[in-house]
Nucleic acid binder design. Structure first.
Lengths: 203, 203
DNA sequence: CGAGGAATTCATCTAGCGTTGAATTCATTG
DNA sequence: CAATGAATTCAACGCTAGATGAATTCCTCG
């Protein structure tokens, strides 16, 4: 392999600092209201440099989302352990992700999904279908009920995230993981394993 | 009383047609993405006329929200009936409102609240504090637990709305009221009346 | 009829956005 | 040292937004 001459693409500092500024901005304002100009300002660079590195705003968003969302390692965590505590494990796992540094990315995609159609599809078809449906599918028994039970689990999970991280309703926003898990876990558990009306098997 | 001369302020048609176009637009796109220009276009008038009638975009939004949200008549509906079915009554009431013509306004404020800070405050402080807290306060027993129980009810309610009306997750989005009430009602009921961990009394 | 004033429109301002292409700096390599 | 080419900046284009104030239409009352 012939190394071409010229300045090496070194100094990745600015690239990652752009990524961090973008992640924070997307998380705080959502996809639409987060502006490349503001992101560049936070990172201390020219807006054109953002395009130089990431091309378009959409690609920048996808670059921000790229690393942290890794369903491959989340699903096993959700599944290991006794089936009757799967609900609590799911909500603990979700809050753990959202409270971690990677959580700002989750908040970003979530906030964006609520006002932007293509990110909404991203959330619906990727997170719900790929992650939740697979995890829930392993836990429940009657697969005919899988879609509805998955959707119901999604209501409680999404609602907890909205109330805690978007609307910041107290005292939920300041509560610790144990409290929320004890309160919400059993309800998710009911959606997973408790008997449900026969009508669920439709659709 | 002396009626001043000149053209009467009659012909409220255009004013209300602007309001209807605004309600539809806010519901579909949220506060930020709904543009006065598009609203004026839908109503078949000049954008400046919108300002003439409503002043600013913010006032237009508040004018849209003014009529339909009437907590005074909702809270009694939520309270009448046996206490052990309050959860199901709450979710039925909410879905009823959202599926009604007034629901577009609710969807508007909701969609807006998720990407706009001042509408988020509107939703949090008005809906949660004024409506939910008052309704829940009448149902539960230990008032020290009221804030946390209210917030928990809000998670399940908001989550159901997000999944059904914003993200449109199937089969929940197409399910009828009875199915959802049977599935979600008991979980809200647990948040209302079932014993909860001692930690709830903090904050 | 003829004025008064509301209803409505027109043209315009300012601000911010994403994006583009040319220009400039500068570390590395031959 | 000189050339290369990535890193970075500058200036600008085209677009959309909310808002404003003057101009115009036209109903209504005296």
């Amino acid at each position: 392999m012939v190394r071409r001459s010229g300045r090496r693409p070194g100094n990745q500092d600015t690239r990652t600092s752009i990524l961090e500024a973008a992640r924070a901005s997307f998380a705080e304002k959502g996809y639409d209201k987060a502006s490349i100009r503001a992101i560049a300002g936070d990172a201390g660079v020219d807006p054109a440099l953002v395009h130089h590195y990431f091309g378009t705003k959409e690609k920048l968003f996808l670059a921000v989302m790229d690393a942290p969302i890794n369903p491959g390692e989340l699903i096993p965590q959700a599944l290991e352990g006794p089936r009757e505590h799967a609900g609590e494990r799911l909500i603990r796992l979700a809050i753990g992700v959202w409270d971690s540094p990677a959580g700002t990315a989750a908040l970003a995609v979530f906030r964006s999904a609520l006002s932007n159609e293509w990110t909404a599809r991203l959330l619906r078809e990727f997170v719900v279908t790929q992650i939740l449906r697979r995890a829930v599918g392993e836990i429940i028994e009657d697969q005919a009920e899988a879609p509805m039970r998955t959707a119901l689990v999604a209501t409680q999970m999404a609602g907890t995230m909205v109330a805690r991280y978007v609307l910041r309703i107290e005292p939920l926003a300041s509560a610790d993981v144990d409290t929320i898990a004890a309160a919400v876990g059993p309800n998710i558990q009911r959606f997973l394993t408790e008997p449900m009306p026969e009508v669920f098997k439709q659709s």
